[in-house]
């Protein structure tokens, strides 16, 4: 996924100016890092160079005058093609968690304490996220983003439980 594709996608609705694109990006994707305005501007320039967007005019709403961009047919084709693809299912092996399990075994001979502490920390975070989901007036977009985070933490927790069950095999491998 690239910023270019996201901006193209947002432009399929109607022509927008750079600041508008930044605001909509941050509103609609609450789970991801807010985008810097400079990045929006640079990306729009690149898209214009490639013929995927074109300047359609200027807008002035109380503030400074802003350039409005519209998507071209090349841009529309590009965003359609991109949507037809899938995200590579990347296995994030050897994440910080498994590094810690292995190190705990090497250094201390046991990972039980670490696994329980990590579980508690994960669950605490999940409790916070669950509580946030239950707050009144939460937007559907934010719900979806929170669900995403919850499911990933859940996956970590399940991995931690499996790790606990495999700890014997791992210990044998590390300290034969």
């Amino acid at each position: 996924m690239s910023i270019g594709h996201v901006l193209l996608g947002l432009l399929t609705e109607r022509p927008k100016h750079g600041y508008e694109l930044k605001r909509e990006h941050d509103d609609r994707f609450p789970g991801v890092k807010p985008i810097a305005y400079g990045q929006v501007y640079a990306t729009l320039q690149r898209l214009e160079r490639d013929g995927k967007v074109a300047v359609s005019g200027t807008a002035k709403e109380g503030g400074p005058e802003r350039v409005v961009y519209e998507i071209t047919s090349v841009g529309t084709d590009e965003v359609r093609r991109w949507l037809a693809e899938i995200e590579p299912p990347a296995p994030y092996v050897s994440s910080a968690l498994s590094t810690r399990v292995v190190l705990a075994l090497i250094v201390g001979g046991t990972a039980d304490g670490y696994l329980l502490r990590q579980r508690a920390a994960h669950l605490e975070r999940m409790r916070e996220l669950t509580a946030r989901k239950n707050t009144a007036g939460i937007s559907a977009g934010e719900l979806l983003a929170t669900d995403y985070a919850l499911h990933h933490l859940d996956a970590d927790l399940r991995w931690l439980e499996t790790a606990r069950q495999r700890i014997g095999e791992l210990t044998k491998e590390i300290r034969p």
């Binding site: 669950l123 999940m126 409790r127 669950t130």
Partner: peptide, 13 residues
């Protein structure tokens, strides 16, 4: 289910 457990104030494993 961890996501169910996350609804609780406290967990007993």
């Amino acid at each position: 289910d961890n996501q169910v457990a996350a609804h609780a104030d406290r967990e007993i494993v």
